[in-house]
Amino acid sequence: MQILVVLEHDGESLRAGSLSAIQFARQLAQQQDGQLHALLLGHDCQPLIEQARQYAPLLVASHPQLAYPLADRQAKVIADVVRNQQATVVIAASSTFSKDVVGRAAGLLGGCMASDVVSHRWHDDQLLLKRPMYAGAILATVRLHGTPSIITVRATAYPAAEQLAAAADVETVTVDEARLPRGTEFEQLDSKPSHRPDVTEASVVVSGGRAIHNSDDFEQLVGGLADCLGAATGSSRALVDAGITPNALQVGQTGKIVSPQLYLALGISGAVQHLAGMKNSRIIAAVNTDPHAPIFEVADYGLVADLYEVVPEMIDKLSNHNA
């Protein structure tokens, strides 16, 4: 078995999810006596190369045309590498990058793909994969028919891989510019830098819902409480739709999937599509004025209260505790 892990990065460092993807790949390699490589795509990425080679033998496709994750170009390079390496399994972490770019690569490679995998097992030498469907209401066990198999895994389902004892080899992939598709141009990326941890990577997430009236209140209450706990902030879809929070904070079926140590849901009623994004958190605590809100059905601790009344007091108590 030849395994290729497609790495994801922000130009400066690897995304945490990629380390989970490597961990999953290592488990497969160990279970089936497989060979593992990782593939890095980008431009001018020397620090990333140093970081990535601590985890797996590395293939690097570096070219100005690959500076941005444009799907048509990057998918072409991925598919070429898969063919050259005769990879039988291609792995990436679930994210908008892998859905877009790796999904297209899978389309070039025969469409044998399972996305958002949360666990795996072997049955008579066949790889069985579990993945959620219907906003997480159903867990399906699936088997892929065809080669290569392309698998994306939820970062929350596999721990981050440990570094190797010694840095692995690095090999350069030749990129033939003339053969790259040119139907897409990058214009800009509008990202809001935040001093808080990423919602998918934090051990504590404080999340706000419909009960919050505006973005100042969100920042003061949800943000304020998050800062007391060194936590990330999250949001329900209602607030993103209302323009109160940016889409990058949305937790749910069509947003981010999180499973922190503690998920604190403030004024979130608990729509199915939101629960799909957070119900695997280790501990869930919820504050809501409605004692019948569905969020309490998935919570470990509940407080029936108005967040506008209790959160300022919580911030006081927690800051005193920290002081």
Binding site: T96, E185, F186, Q188, L189, D190, S191, K192, T200, K256
Partner: peptide, 11 residues
């Protein structure tokens, strides 16, 4: 809408 923010491209 990407994990990194709003990306604008021309196709």
């Amino acid at each position: 809408e990407t994990d990194a923010g709003i990306e604008t491209i021309l196709v």
